[in-house]
Amino acid sequence: MNPLMMLATTRRVLGELRHDHRSIAMILVVPALLLTAVYFLFENETLPPGVPRTFDRVGLMMLAIFPFVVMFLVTSITMLRERTSGTLERLMTTPIHKADLLFGYALAFSIMAALQSLVATAVAYLVFDLDIQGPPGYVVMIAVINAVLGVALGLLCSAFARTEFQAVQFMPVVVVPQILLCGLFVARDRMNDVLEAISNVLPLTFSVDALQEIAANTEATPALWENAGIMAAIVLGVLVLASLTLRRQTA
């Protein structure tokens, strides 16, 4: 690996995005708007005393899910364009290492994801008084790990799509099941055995578990670090798989 080539790639990916003001605005603003919608959805709920608001549970999870979904889409389209426009093949004729390219991408989009989750987390805390035990810094950390997971899965899935139309179709396949089974809609211990078993191995599940740790404790717990560590390992594994789809030679 060569850090200069990796940073050049990060700079290039961000440069491509920089001219696209509309995309930047959507990445930064849309999660905050959706969070607002969630807040008002549960605005009038009546709760017995001592029970936390639904917004504190659902809003918190959404903070981590947005970057995952958005970065998956942005990355799979960008990488698909790179594959179809010939720039990937051209890069493969230069001394760049595959890892420089993949980590360059991952770094660029995690910077975007960090900005996104800073905006969304700030809105959740400052505007809607998100009420959890743990500090917001850990929430942002989990959001960024989730974003990198989205980047890694996007890089991998772009190999199996020939057109942007197909690439978008990977969202219901890869992203939606994880959202359904991560514990957002139904607590995982109340799922049937099959669904719970699937849910146990889906990456997003670990980040929801991590967020619940943050919500319940004022300090970082070993379980938080364990979940974050598993997520990081999954991200690395997916990136390795993605690197196998980058071929220097094609038929």
């Binding site: 080539m5 700079r11 440069g15 491509e16 995005l17 001219h19 010939g86 051209r90 230069t94």
Partner: peptide, 23 residues
Amino acid sequence: TQDPSVYPDLSVESNVRYFGAMY
């Protein structure tokens, strides 16, 4: 390549700088 393989969203300079960075 026959079809220009550069990044349309980048400036001329940024394109050349990126590929130059590999060398």
